[in-house]
Design a binder for these strands. Structure first.
Lengths: 412, 412
DNA sequence: CGCTATTTGTTCAACCATTGAATTATTTGC
DNA sequence: GCAAATAATTCAATGGTTGAACAAATAGCG
């Protein structure tokens, strides 16, 4: 999903307009204040005539709308500001996780226009039933969105596991799913999405990937390359390079939880030894802090840990320090390998960041060859627990902004 | 360097032609046998009329030439085959390494048309003097290329160290270079390159990166995403993702030599502990095999090691097995992180691959979560010792093929 | 040998999107 | 109330692709 979308095959005449639609819309999306047509002309290098023509298409397609003129000093005809439409296409974000279902709707501007979180232990629930509940929530979201003038143009579903290109969930260990054909199961319910050329009706992806995308598009805009680590029961990472998620050859990148941090250490359920997950996974931290007996939901355990650390509990502090050190070893590997300058701690790690960041930074400083010249930032995620659902919905609208021609060409 | 080159800013009318020039030329470059204009039309989706017009430009610019008609069964006017020109633009590849200088010229088709290797210990030589010697070799190469009808359209220099965007060699430890302003030093010599819009006259890059590019463009074409590991005194990796080299935020990606494989292990000169280089670097292997006293050039030491292993020497075999295991731990990390399916062992590792591959594969099998579904291939590099120089020259011509408009628009 | 079918490559008018200059629209400042 | 300034639109011209018609060159067949 690159921002400058080159036509896959032949560059035909229409491609020119497609490219410029994307260029102008992208500028409108990236601007801090509503730009005028003249602003867009100077920013893009197109002539005012072309910008006017392009904007006319965008207005007709409900992708942008004109806003009140931005006040400007000096003489001259006042400009008409252009903003992303708050009515028109929107993205549906879905998430199935271990202890909740989440649904949200995000508009073109990235605003969350609808949000539902349904807490429940999903482990004992059959995949088809879990998805049926999700569809019910999504249906309500669709109606709410329609009342606000929004049309759902695509959906993305986040799951805590490995997903292949076709949307088949190969393995979601903490959820107990194995080879679940999500698209087929969802196809049995009435469709909620208006089919738009170029926008897939449903994308299924790893939760860590989509949470990273959520972080990428959160405001204020951060760096375009970073590592986003989701510290849940498992540890997953989303790798964002140059503003695009890197999925790997088969879409299974980011398995940072199984980087070996003690190659001859504790055996891991993956078959390896000394994997990061065994030292910095949520269960490992909780056990090391002496909270093993507390059979609490994951997020409660994290909160309890943060409380203890806040209060200065020695066991909790030591557990967090050790986990941070292990995490730092793995992060140093990633930074050495990919030369990233930003690491975001998300999921359960976000709340624990005050205690995890120092040891992580210490390991980076000691192990990264280039750290002296180029400091690495480690910071908590700005999005909350439902980052993946928001990122999922955001990925849909981002795609519309990057390729507006599909939406404009739709039949409806 | 993406193959489908989208215009950075505005899509103007000329962009269409630029895009289609690149599209058609790219098809010609990728084809197994010389395609006809009609073949190109069906392959690209353009009309035959457009292809004819585009090809006319390419012929006029000496980027392609017509070949003998390829024999075809059935009736019809015989096609005229199109091949990349063996006269016209070419790329100059340069390499400064610890114990040799290398220069080569590669034509559009990827053929090496000139090659010089000058063996000498460069460590005691001042950077300016080393570069002066290199320029001398390059000058001869330019003359030889000119005799063959080739024009040097750009150059790339490989160095075994960290290079920043401006071509400044920040640190080349094994060469003893530090903050060497290569472009400024080379600018003091008469230029060898015809300035071409869009093609930088000189690119300076890490040796491991350029060797990976060489592997990417070697024949027969391999996968478009892989990890290329250069095992010299240091261990560097080039990461190729979707046919493009991934350089990292500042161009310092691939420092695989400093992935921690034994986090509390031997101290490394980078400041960390237990880095891969301490267990699988050339000096470490040689020492472990009991060859420490032999003060031989690096490539000779590797050859000796291979001889011993071939003869069944127990020390050598154990040293190689241990090094392969350490390498496997690091490679498993990379594969878990990036989901690559191919790992190429280059540089000094190429000759040792028969003994390194098995332990590497064993570690991957044990540590990579997805290895069961998707086998990972580990194989030696197909290019020889001067892979980096060939890759450097290849990166220049590859850029011309990806963006032919610049060459066509040149004054000459 | 000649005719037809077939495939390649070119020519040409039409079309589409961008361009650049001229024009209209709307405000500020004097 | 008028000139200057900025925003946006209109319109003939231009560059590039399109699609169909046409010319070129060959194999197969009678």
């Amino acid at each position: 999903m690159s921002l400058t979308h080159a036509p896959a095959g032949a560059a035909r005449q229409g491609s020119l307009r497609e490219l410029n639609l994307a260029l102008v819309l992208g500028r409108i999306a990236a601007a801090h204040r509503p730009p005028s047509r003249a602003d867009l002309a100077t920013a893009t290098g197109l002539t005012r005539a072309t910008v006017s023509a392009v904007v006319e298409d965008l207005l007709a397609g409900q992708l942008v709308s004109e806003s009140d003129p931005a006040p400007r000093a000096g003489a001259g005809r006042p400009a008409r500001g252009l903003v992303l439409a708050d009515q028109g296409p929107a993205g549906l974000g879905l998430e199935v996780n271990v202890d909740y279902l989440a649904v949200c709707v995000v508009d073109l501007g990235g605003q969350v226009r609808h949000r539902t979180v349904h807490r429940a232990d999903l482990r004992p629930v059959a995949p088809a039933d879990a998805l049926a509940r999700l569809v019910e929530l999504a249906s309500e979201a669709r109606d709410d969105a329609a009342d606000q003038g929004l049309t759902l143009a695509g959906a993305a579903l986040a799951v805590p596991g490995l997903v292949d290109d076709a949307g088949l969930v190969r393995l979601a260990p903490n959820l107990g799913w194995r080879d679940v054909p999500v698209p087929a199961l969802l196809a049995e319910h009435p469709p909620l999405i208006e089919q738009v050329p170029g926008i897939p009706a449903l994308v299924v992806d790893n939760e860590a990937n989509l949470a990273a995308l959520g972080e990428l598009h959160s405001r204020p805009p951060g760096p375009s390359s970073f590592l986003h680590i989701s510290g849940e029961v498992g540890i997953g990472a989303g790798i964002v390079l140059d503003g695009a998620l890197f999925r790997g050859v088969r879409g299974w990148s980011g398995e940072i939880g199984h980087l070996p941090v003690h190659p001859e250490g504790r055996p891991c359920r993956c078959g390896g030894q000394g994997c990061l997950e065994q030292y910095a996974g949520q269960e490992a931290i909780v056990a090391a802090a002496g909270l093993a007996r507390a059979e609490l939901p994951a997020d409660t355990a994290t909160a309890r840990l943060a409380e203890l650390a806040e209060a200065g509990d020695a066991d909790a502090l030591r557990a967090l320090h050790d986990a941070g050190t292990a995490l730092g070893v793995a992060v140093a590997s990633v930074v050495n390998l990919l030369d990233l300058d930003t690491v975001v701690l998300g999921g359960g790690y976000a709340a624990l960041a005050p205690w995890l960041c120092p040891p992580v930074l210490a390991e980076i400083a000691g192990r990264v060859l280039t750290a002296a010249w180029s400091p690495v930032t480690v910071r908590p995620s700005t999005l909350g627990a439902e980052a993946a659902a928001v990122g999922a919905a955001g990925s849909v609208v981002r795609r519309i902004v990057a390729q507006p021609a599909g939406w404009l060409a739709r039949s409806g």
